[in-house]
Design a protein around this nucleic acid. Structure first.
Lengths: 197, 197
DNA sequence: CAGGTTTTGTACCGAATGGAACAAAACTGG
DNA sequence: CCAGTTTTGTTCCATTCGGTACAAAACCTG
């Protein structure tokens, strides 16, 4: 009952996500959010309660989308462990090369870590929970790779999983710093050799 | 002539650097800067003209200090190319492990890239100029390593230099994300194997 | 259609923001 | 010791900030 919503909540979250991603938490004003979502302040506050709540919704949306994509690539059947990780890195490079042209760049999660994670425990927990999920699926891919021989057997799965997430962060930073597609592909190509026997 | 300064400009820049590093450009208020430097607003504005000018001074101070350190490690005599890069990574890990305890964490340059570089050309140029310096000294170390046999001869020096900078960024992000010293050392240990023959 | 409930539109609020104004203070060169 | 110059202390300002108040609007249930 009550007056029905005149907007789609998920669409609003996505618009907010793009804005926070591009401008950061501190750099985004509530006015920016109104404009990005096309909603009046009253609707935003009625639905999301505060700027920080909306940020958490936006970040949750981002991490779940991205981590699902990563999981899908890493769970691909018929490819060995190394090939799956190589595909993941290629997808990241594609992303970042595309972002370069659209102006949107880098990784929302990484941006969040470098700015507000230290100041906001709730956001830090969100990021950390996602990190562990990503580490877990990477660890599985590494263990698969060790069994199928595509990844050196002496690589510790934990260390290798951490390594790949760090490499991904590094690639996205490089993209934001102005590296072109060729440079990003070079980074991935060199980086993947840390895993081969 | 005129009334003499009652403070040391470099000290003020360093204090501002720590503050911007920890809280970011948008998250730092001019009041924060007054408190960190111990200066009244009038002195800050008289000397540094604006928040953005002070930020540039702070960032310049940071990158020149850090890049000089990196250069010193990479120019160490008596070590082969790979050993020098390994030392650099070890220094980064030490830094980040120490930062973890002091609360200060991550890399000011990386934080800047993820937040304001896209919105401010002057700051972006500052970061990019520094990046090229770091890439150049890494490229030299890689070429040395190829000659002395510590680095695989088929690694492209450009790609390898980009790779190491990305790996460094990734390690710092991991540190900010909560990785402990052991995890960071693991990342560096795996990462360095991308360069070995 | 009446009563209850939720959303929407508009107006507004106190606080904090980056920065300017300006006079007093502290120096130097003549 | 005076004129000129720079720094310092205080006060103030316009704007923007995140958020609230409240009534009108639009629905559902009975």
């Amino acid at each position: 009952m009550g007056r029905p919503r005149q907007f789609n909540e998920e669409h609003a979250v996505q618009a907010a996500c793009r804005t926070f991603w591009a401008k950061g938490f501190d750099g985004t004003s509530t006015e920016d959010l109104c404009q990005a979502t096309g909603l009046p302040r009253s609707s935003l506050y009625n639905t999301f309660h505060s700027k920080e709540h909306l940020f958490r919704r936006a970040l949750s949306h981002y991490v779940s989308t991205m981590t699902a994509r990563q999981g899908a690539i890493l769970d691909t059947q018929g490819a060995n462990g190394l090939e799956r990780i190589r595909s993941l890195l290629a997808a990241i490079v594609d992303d970042e090369a595309a972002n370069r042209q659209s102006g949107q760049s880098g990784c929302f999660t990484v941006n969040t870590i470098t700015t507000i994670a230290a100041r906001n425990p709730a956001i830090a927990r969100l990021v950390e929970a996602d990190l562990h999920k990503r580490l877990a699926s990477l660890r599985l891919a590494v263990m698969d790779g060790r069994l199928d021989g595509s990844i050196a057997a002496d690589r510790d799965p934990d260390a290798a999983a951490w390594y790949v997430t760090s490499l991904i962060s590094g690639i996205r930073i490089a993209g934001q710093a102005g590296a072109d597609r060729e440079a990003l592909e070079g980074i991935a190509a060199v980086g993947v050799q840390a895993l081969t026997p």
